[in-house]
Design a protein around this nucleic acid. Structure first.
Length: 288
DNA sequence: TCATCACCTGGAGA
DNA sequence: ATCTCCAGGTGAT
């Protein structure tokens, strides 16, 4: 295996994409829809609870090409060098959809707790590799859930979002298979029609589960990154507040600049900035 | 089209 | 102990 294609599990799993993963005795276990995964770093090894495992780690992506392309930007290039093995993941669409609806105005710790409780309350219990897991609930389960039960998972004001959003999928008003096939913009418009989904959450779902690698979610961190390092490149756009139209304008410029794999560059920049911020006191710039 | 504000909850810091 | 602030936003005025 070539160096540039080697996946780093710790970095990837702790990059804000997934929430239902735990490391037990040095081995990663995670929930992806109804699939439970067991993944070891050394030697790299994946065991799935399913006969036909999903390609969760996007192992067929041409990383040489992608990293080459996004590394045209100097800051991204240094982030790629600093976090080798960071990858985008291919998540179960429904789980990803609900996960990021829950993420709104919440912390990662809190999101993890909400999702864990949702699985325990509504998901199927599964034995795997000597441990007990709860799969992510079926669409129907959440579509027919009582608001009260959702509230007991700690969702707060997101409970009504989750219920309504699950109903939209259950009634086929929203079809993930179709969204995968259609183009970025129309898939995004469809997602944004769902109660509880705005620009940022839509982009996360598109990037992490619906094959839209040009999606570039802009949250507080990303916004900070753009203001801090790219204010000259995107002059006049990122100083303004993140309104509907402004978000679209920025995305247009982003794709123009970073290219069709803009989502990958976002992931590296995001990871870099979070990491930089975590270690207080040793804030030093990457490239100058 | 844009700015403000409320919103559940849990953890951190005063 | 109690309070305040804020966290990977969104929807309603």
């Amino acid at each position: 295996m070539q160096e540039f294609t080697r996946i780093n599990l710790d970095i990837t799993i702790n990059s804000g994409q997934v929430f239902l993963w735990d490391k037990i005795d040095g081995v990663w276990y995670g929930v992806n829809g109804t699939e439970i995964l067991r993944v070891k770093q050394n030697p790299f090894d994946i065991i799935s609870s399913q006969k036909k495992p999903s390609d969760f780690f996007r192992q067929e992506d041409n990383m040489e090409k992608i990293l080459n392309k996004i590394s045209r930007d100097n800051l991204v290039r240094s982030a790629v060098e600093r976090f080798p093995g960071l990858r985008l993941l291919r998540q179960d669409p429904f789980q990803c959809y609900i996960s990021f609806i829950c993420s709104s105005n919440s912390s990662i710790q809190n999101i993890k707790q909400m999702l864990k409780r949702i699985c325990q309350k509504f998901g199927k219990k599964m034995d795997f590799d000597g441990y007990e897991f709860f799969a992510f609930p079926a669409v129907e389960k959440l579509a027919k859930a009582n608001l009260k039960d959702l509230l007991s998972c700690g969702l707060g004001f997101r409970a009504k979002y989750v219920k309504t959003a699950a109903m939209s999928v259950h009634s086929d008003a929203l079809e993930f298979d179709f969204l995968k096939k259609t183009d970025y913009k129309s898939a995004k418009d469809d997602l944004k029609n769902i109660y509880g989904i705005g620009n940022k959450v839509a982009d996360c779902i598109l990037l992490f589960s619906l094959e839209k690698l040009e999606a570039f979610p802009i949250d507080r961190w990303t916004q900070r990154i753009l203001q801090k390092y790219y204010s000259k490149k995107f002059f006049g756009l990122i100083e303004k507040s993140l309104t509907e139209k402004n978000y679209e304008d920025i995305h247009e410029k982003i794709v123009e600049y970073f290219g069709p794999y803009a989502g990958y560059s976002q992931q590296f920049l995001y990871k870099m900035e979070r990491d930089l911020n975590k270690k207080n006191g040793c804030e030093k710039p990457l490239i100058w």
